[in-house]
């Protein structure tokens, strides 16, 4: 008999004569304490993200590419990975054509196998969008796709993320319900709540463990 059959048979034997417990999920326990007036959502998210060394800027739809250029210049970063096929990627590319000297723009346009070493060793920063944010935990939500693949927000030492203020939900439960996540998820969904960190040595917090050393969030104030 297969391991599968044996395991399932043992479990079924142990449950013989019992009924599954009814679902008594009380959603108020995961939403009630985590509700915020709309005007406080940004502040809450910002406070939590800054508490774990995230750099947060509040900016506007037309202003953020200039801010990105400034942030990169300040760090003397010479290249940026971006996604030209996205609306924000298009906006960045056109802002880059203003004649001033800017970091070189790079594109994640081929399978990782063809340029893994380049991504790991050469790319200094990346810029991606987000599908929203969560005020309760200070989190960004990313749904990586063809344009902005999974490693794009992980491998470069600096990750810049764009977050629309209107996309910030009170809590995770509200967000997954509003967006009907249970109907099916993409290959990968991520909640990102700061730059990578560890406290594995003496509980001393150190940033830049294996993922980005810096996370910069640009909140677009569209509400």
């Amino acid at each position: 008999m297969s391991a599968r059959t044996n395991i399932l048979n043992k479990l079924r034997t142990s449950l013989a004569g019992t009924k599954p417990r009814p679902d008594e999920f009380d959603e108020s326990l995961v939403t009630g304490p985590w509700r915020y007036p709309p005007e406080e959502r940004v502040a809450r998210l910002r406070e939590l993200m800054e508490a774990v060394h995230t750099e947060v800027h509040q900016t506007r739809q037309n202003d953020w590419p200039v801010l990105v250029a400034e942030l990169l210049a300040k760090r003397e970063i010479t290249n940026l990975l971006y996604a030209p096929a996205t609306p924000h990627g298009g906006q960045l590319a056109s802002a880059w054509k203003d004649g001033t000297r800017k970091p070189e723009l790079r594109v994640y346009d081929r399978p990782i196998e063809e340029w893994k070493v380049g991504l790991f060793n050469d790319v200094q920063a990346s810029l991606t969008g987000t599908t929203g944010g969560i005020a309760a935990t200070g989190s960004l939500v990313l749904w990586p796709d063809r344009n902005e693949p999974r490693l794009m927000s992980l491998v470069p030492p600096v990750h810049i993320a764009l977050l629309k203020a209107s996309g910030i939900h009170d809590n995770w439960y509200d967000m997954m319900t509003a967006q009907n996540w249970s109907a099916g998820l993409p290959t990968n969904v991520l909640l990102v709540s700061g730059p990578s960190k560890t406290a594995d040595i003496e509980q001393v917090l150190a940033y830049g463990a294996h993922g980005p050393k810096e996370l910069i969030v640009l909140i677009l104030e569209d509400v």
């Binding site: 939590l48 774990v52 309760a136 935990t137 200070g138 989190s139 099916g184 998820l185 993409p186 290959t187 990968n188 969904v189 991520l190 909640l191 990102v192 709540s193 700061g194 730059p195 990578s196 960190k197 993922g211």
Partner: peptide
């Protein structure tokens, strides 16, 4: 921590 830095939900291999 209110949440860890990463919550990683994997629902399949590369498409």
């Amino acid at each position: 921590q209110p949440i860890t830095t990463y919550v990683n939900l994997i629902s399949g291999p590369r498409k």
